[in-house]
Amino acid sequence: MRTIPFPALTARWLMALLPLLCGCYKDELDVDTLNNNPFDREYVGPPVFAFDTTFTEVINGDLTRQVFQFRVASGLFLEPQSYSVFVQDQGAGVSEIVPQFPAGSDLLTYYRTPAGPGQEVCLQLSLSNNYHHGRAETICGTLP
């Protein structure tokens, strides 16, 4: 039986491995397909926000304010995350960041003053972190 010198033998093995090595690590990451994170501004998927309810409440005995509650579908998150919601009230011309309260709650509340009874209010909502806002969704509700 003929003996093959060690370097030649090693080279043969490595040459056999080359096609395998060349075959792996294909460029399979396509940026266009990265759109399932609700925090992404280019998010494409089911709505993240859903109208819950509106009601009025009296604070400090004499001040009435309208409460607009909405839900965040945190089940759409790819990982559990804490977040805030950036609310743009186009009717009132104000915007503010609404935090989770209590922490971990997905039912968020936007307070609106002065009250405008019977009025339909549309809010533009975006998930927010570090004062950066995601894709906006609009939800509407009629104030009591």
């Binding site: 990265l34 925090f39 992404d40 501004r41 998150f77 977040y83 998930l127 972190n129 950066h132």
Partner: peptide, 26 residues
């Protein structure tokens, strides 16, 4: 790139995600 994909999955900062998609990943 795999780390980038994971960063996208776990990201919660819209600005960081935008930078990841527009600058880092390309």
């Amino acid at each position: 790139l795999q780390a980038d994909e994971e960063a996208y999955r776990t990201g919660s900062d819209p600005q960081a995600i935008a930078q990841l998609k527009d600058v880092l990943i390309p």
